[in-house]
């Protein structure tokens, strides 16, 4: 068990290192930072001075190592647009809003998606099943920017039940979380439905019934426990969908999270912040996948003995 966790952690660290290389070189491809920082009216002397100050006259490998060394101490440079604030400080201020939104959306989609999936499988080919399949199809086809605007129009503008935007109270979470979660809700519903159908046709379900267990124990214990394994496997991916989806959803609902920060920084060409946001999102994704891997070992006994 410990061996597997250790191995997964090392893998995660390697992935993080590779990602830092990719992000560093990609950001260099977006153009000359000196020209960007100084603007059109700069003199040649200013340019040379800034190039030296930023260390851009050094070989690219040295530049990367300097970047990495600083990043490890939490120094991602300073924002060009937002009053020279440290990039990390900007991100940390926005992170709780994003994590709480993703958390609420994920919790909601897990509960509802599992419920839908189980009901659809138990009542295979019934009206419930057809409804669940329809929701799954729509949820995976509708783009989130459109859905966000429609929900906002219907529930905030027309009905006036919920606020259009803002952050702080529970009402503010409903529309953004629904928009952010619908794709994942559809995916979980489909996944649970198909794995429940498979589980319900298995021999161990027959044995559970032969034992005289009640139908609710057969479904919610024996069939669901096995059907949740693929859901857990995909949880890292779902989390990634939520974090990347946050860029659009947070922008639509003016949610003060890192998704909107990324959007604003890109518009402002504030590339130290963009670089830092991408690195933080990547780290979150890698950490989420690490947690999923560990969780997987905990819930599936067959994985445990492979260490």
């Amino acid at each position: 068990m410990f061996k597997i966790v250790a191995a997964r952690t090392v893998e995660a660290l390697i992935a993080l290192l590779l990602m830092s290389i990719v992000i560093f070189f990609l950001s260099r491809l977006t153009g000359d930072p000196v020209a960007l920082l100084l603007g059109d009216g700069a003199t040649e002397a200013d340019k040379i001075k800034l190039t030296r100050d930023l260390g851009l006259d050094q070989p690219i490998v040295i530049q990367y190592l300097t970047f990495l060394g600083k990043a490890l101490t939490g120094d991602f440079g300073r924002s060009v647009a937002a009053g020279n604030q440290p990039a990390l400080q900007l991100i940390m201020a926005r992170l709780p809003a994003s994590l709480s939104l993703a958390g609420v959306a994920l919790a909601f989609t897990m509960v509802v998606g599992i419920l839908f999936g189980v009901m659809a499988a138990v009542r295979h080919n019934s009206a419930v099943d057809i409804a669940a399949r329809l929701i799954a199809l729509v949820g995976q086809s509708v783009p989130s920017f459109w859905l966000g605007i429609v929900l906002m129009y219907v529930f905030a503008v027309q009905l006036g039940w919920l606020p259009t935007s803002g952050y702080g109270r529970w009402e503010h979470y409903v529309l953004p979380a629904a928009t952010l979660g619908l794709f994942t809700l559809a995916a979980i519903t489909r996944l649970v439905r198909s794995s429940m159908l498979e589980a319900l046709g298995s021999e161990y379900i027959k044995l559970a019934r032969v034992k005289g267990l009640s139908e609710s124990v057969v479904i919610w214990k024996h069939a669901l426990a096995n059907s949740l394994i693929p859901v857990v496997t995909f949880m890292g991916t779902f989390f990634a969908v939520m974090i990347t989806g946050a860029v659009i959803v947070e922008t639509v609902f003016s949610w003060p999270g890192i998704g909107r920060l990324a959007y604003e920084s890109i518009l402002a060409r504030d590339f130290p912040v963009v670089q830092a946001v991408v690195l933080v999102i990547t780290s979150l994704f890698i950490i989420a996948n690490l947690l999923v891997d560990i969780l997987y070992v905990v819930i599936d006994p067959r994985m445990r003995s492979r260490g």
Partner: peptide
């Protein structure tokens, strides 16, 4: 009434002890 099923490999739930 009880029953012994055909396939011992598949009739136990892999998740539980």
């Amino acid at each position: 009434i009880s029953m012994i099923l055909q396939d011992p490999m598949a009739s136990l739930n892999p998740i539980f002890t």
